[in-house]
Nucleic acid binder design. Structure first.
Lengths: 304, 304
DNA sequence: GGGGATCATGTACATTTGTTCACAACAATG
DNA sequence: CATTGTTGTGAACAAATGTACATGATCCCC
């Protein structure tokens, strides 16, 4: 077990990579890689014994300001990749905290949620993961609700459901036909009874979010004219947090805004300046009652 | 709790010192130091999940070759300071493994044992620590048996005993007088009944060990002429592992070699080329039945 | 027995981390 | 009130670590 020896020499005896390489007769780079592997595989476990969360005060303030049940904040850093990972791991922590064994989790389609799935720890909870809307067509590498449900299910030893329908049907009639399908309806009914919703919150900037980016400019303009300020799991809402019913809304195959709002735990996952307006509305109108965001966004939300 | 936030940002979110410093508005150096503090104070705990020890095969071979009950080997590295610390921490591990609550531990005076005391983990065992010989006069920073016993006692919430006598009396008569003192005798009798002896093994090179370095060259020559190859806790032995009785031996205030040998667990702690001959004899003659050494010394001992 | 992919490896470099030093602020001591 | 030690600080440097890329091995499929 070379890996274990390397890990112990490094973490228990404080030798450098080079020293370990010399005593073991391997290259330094190999030691570096073995150590990375040891951390990834859990051979090396690092525990920080701190009860309080990183931004405890901001989390408390945000919860109070918007009447949220709980808030989690990840650290903002310049390095976007790192910030995204930190954000996702805080999201995973938040979801894990709310998840009970055999829970039913409704999943909104969102790149943020997809990242959370990646970071989700391996804990056998046997939960069920159910998409709240159909899939986008084409390759959207890993952000399709079905893959997403699968990723969560794999990590929790749970079950993943598939909604065999497009997120956006070609016409209102086609959407209605999809919804009439027993398989589709069954899954959506299950999603509606979920304990917990996990969804991203999207803004209305051009090209933002999986739904908007699949629309033309004309349709987007129409949405804005109808008062849309953002979307939750594929459903656009206006400045009061009410659903924007229109041509687009009728083509979406998924739970409606009121059905989403009926789910007890509604965990919103969003960060970034472009999402601020949507986020503010979603929080004020109670669309979500649990929030994961980053510290910059939190500060902006609190700066009122 | 700045410390905790820094630790979590670093270990849970993988930010760099600089990134943490920027988000928290402190200097990078401060972050570096806080992280070091977090590791030292145990706020950050690093566990390596590996059952097998570092040099399991050599340990097994050495135990078999010399009929030892158990052997612990620390990694040898060029950096002497680091090697010493690794050695000491393995020594601490070994002693901790053999220590039962309320045990009586006899302590041989040795810099190696002193280092072990430094590395000994804080575990409340309520053991008693008893010197097997008197103190050296003058300042030998931290290697006096009394300080040594205190250091162990502090970390185990145990009791430290003091032997109010010099290691080396001015004359055989003075030594006898010391031994006649009820306080001294009481402590030595307790030491003789110890469950475990922890002692360094010294060679006979000039200036080596606390005892030899306090002698003149003439006395050392005399010792060699009498056949001494090394010492255990202040008592010199010859190539057969038998006591070297002579002018020096009569002046030492402490347990005799036979009394040391009567202690059930005898943990020898020694490493280095200069100690090889002494170590080999001590092992072959059963002066110790438990051994802590480093990998270079282990290899040399096995190369027969 | 060739391609062609995948994997492991090491070199060279970039980044990150740790350490030494000099200085300043403060507290204890004469 | 000077003085000595103690502590905390950051700048500058030295060391350690991580990464991108190039190379060579190995396997697999045709």
């Amino acid at each position: 077990m070379l890996l274990g020896r390397v890990a112990r020499m490094y973490y228990e005896h404080g030798l450098t990579h080079q020293e370990i390489a010399d005593t073991l007769g391997v290259s330094r780079i190999r030691v570096t890689r073995l150590l990375a592997e040891a951390r990834e595989t859990g051979v090396v476990e690092i525990i920080v014994h701190v009860e309080e969360s990183l931004f405890a005060d901001d989390e408390r303030d945000l919860a109070a300001a918007f009447g949220l049940r709980q808030v989690w904040i990840s650290p903002s850093v310049a390095d976007e990749q790192k910030a995204a990972r930190a954000f996702a791991s805080v999201g995973a922590e938040a979801l894990a905290a709310k998840l009970e064994p055999d829970a039913v989790v409704a999943l909104g389609l969102s790149t943020a949620v997809a990242l959370v799935a990646e970071e989700f720890p391996d804990h056998p909870l046997a939960a069920s993961f159910v998409p709240v809307a159909g899939s986008v067509s084409g390759l959207v590498n890993g952000a399709n609700p079905h893959e997403l449900a699968l990723a969560f299910a794999r990590r929790t030893n749970g079950r993943a459901f598939h909604l065999p329908a497009p997120l956006l049907a070609a016409s209102p009639e086609a959407a209605a036909a999809s919804l009439a399908d027993p398989g589709v309806r069954g899954v959506l009914e299950l999603a509606a009874r979920a304990d917990t919703l996990v969804a991203g919150i999207g803004g209305t900037a051009r090209g933002q979010g999986l739904l908007l980016s699949s629309l033309g400019d004309a349709e987007r303009e129409r949405l804005l004219a109808d008062g849309a300020v953002g979307d939750l799991a594929g459903r656009f809402f206006d400045a009061d947090g009410d659903a924007v019913h229109g041509a687009l809304d009728a083509r979406v195959v998924g739970l409606g805004l009121d059905e989403l709002r009926a789910i007890p735990n509604r965990l919103g996952i969003a960060r970034g300046e472009t999402k601020l307006a949507a986020l503010r509305t979603a929080l004020e109108s109670g669309l979500v009652n649990l929030l994961v965001t980053d510290s910059d966004t939190a500060k902006a939300l609190l700066a009122d």
